[in-house]
């Protein structure tokens, strides 16, 4: 019976996990930046435009 392959050490996996969390935070921040910027750019008159 072959041993299961362990490509990364527990330390490597911990580093990868931390990086993934940071990346998730960055992506969430980008989402907020685009959302708020869109509101700011559109301004209050967006609801009054002709449809």
């Amino acid at each position: 019976m072959a041993e299961p392959v362990q490509p990364f050490s527990p330390e490597d996996m911990a580093r990868r996990r931390k990086r993934s969390i940071v990346l998730a935070i960055v992506l969430a921040a980008l989402m907020v930046i685009f959302f708020v910027s869109t509101l700011v750019r559109l301004g209050g008159s967006v609801g009054e435009r002709a449809l």
Binding site: E3, V5, Q6, P7, F8, S9, D12, R15, R16, K18, R19
Partner: peptide, 16 residues
């Protein structure tokens, strides 16, 4: 197993 681990490490992805 050791070889696999080395080659994966050499392919990067270990920076914090």
């Amino acid at each position: 197993t050791a070889h696999t681990a080395r080659s994966l490490t050499a392919s990067g992805g270990q920076g914090t």
